[in-house]
């Protein structure tokens, strides 16, 4: 089980190099980072996974983009849209997580989408930067949406991931701080541990119900 920050933006998206982020992540208690558009590597004992975020393109283009990323070991995420879009994306093979659920409309992720996410091992990413840097109604709405997702997660048991969305080492938070921040949306320590290791679950191949042995 590797404690993972599921989305960071190193230089040139942010002001910190991926090595510096890895160094900081080690000090903050992480084992792995998913760095957007950064090659797979290892720095200072931290595994750097390539992350890809697909957003603002129609569904058919998403499919071709996913095919392009299939050969790489990238963690492919798609920005959440409306309900039908999300259901379609969840059913696509090669999508690992849905991001930005707090910005999507209220009905964007319902019990049907939750069941599909659980069946297809697609994670829902919780963006903690909204809780950290958001204020007022933005943060309240995000927290409310996260609580909604957590209710569905308890019922359908789809995977969750936690992201700092850090563009700088100053945006990164320690595991203990993340545990505290998640406690305000109703996650206990075991939930947080499970979510921090959610990348392990979605990147592993599913156990087959039937194995052909000969």
């Amino acid at each position: 089980m590797k404690i993972t920050d599921a989305c960071v933006f190193p230089y040139p998206y942010g002001d910190s190099s991926v090595r510096r982020m890895a160094l900081e992540a080690r000090n903050l208690g992480f084992d792995r980072l998913v760095a957007i558009d950064t090659p797979h590597a290892g720095c200072y004992g931290i595994e750097i996974c390539t992350g890809v975020i697909i957003k603002g393109i129609p569904l058919k283009d998403i499919n071709s983009r996913i095919k392009k990323e299939k050969s790489t070991e990238a963690v492919v995420s798609v920005e959440a849209g409306d309900n039908s879009f999300n259901r379609a994306v969840i059913s696509l093979k090669g999508v690992h997580s849905i991001r930005g659920i707090q910005s999507a409309e209220k009905t964007a992720f319902d019990h049907v989408a939750a069941k599909m996410a659980a069946d297809n091992r697609v994670a829902i990413d919780l963006d903690l930067s909204v809780i950290v840097s958001g204020r007022g109604s933005t943060r309240q709405r995000a927290m409310h949406r996260f609580r909604d997702v957590l209710i569905l997660e308890q019922r359908f048991e789809f995977p969750l991931t936690l992201s700092s969305y850090a563009h700088s080492v100053l945006d990164m938070r320690a595991v203990r701080e993340i545990t505290g921040l998640c406690s305000i949306i109703g996650m206990d320590i075991s939930d947080v541990e499970k979510a921090l290791s959610g990348i392990d679950f979605i990147m592993s191949s599913p156990d087959r119900a039937v194995t052909v042995i000969s």
């Binding site: 809780i131 950290v132 840097s133 700088s168 080492v169 100053l170 945006d171 990164m172 938070r173 320690a174 203990r176 701080e177 505290g180 921040l181 406690s183 305000i184």
Partner: peptide
Amino acid sequence: LAIALSTITTCHEVRIALRI
């Protein structure tokens, strides 16, 4: 207090992070 401290990103318009 610790949770609130982790939500501080600026101090007098200067970007900071507080590590407990």
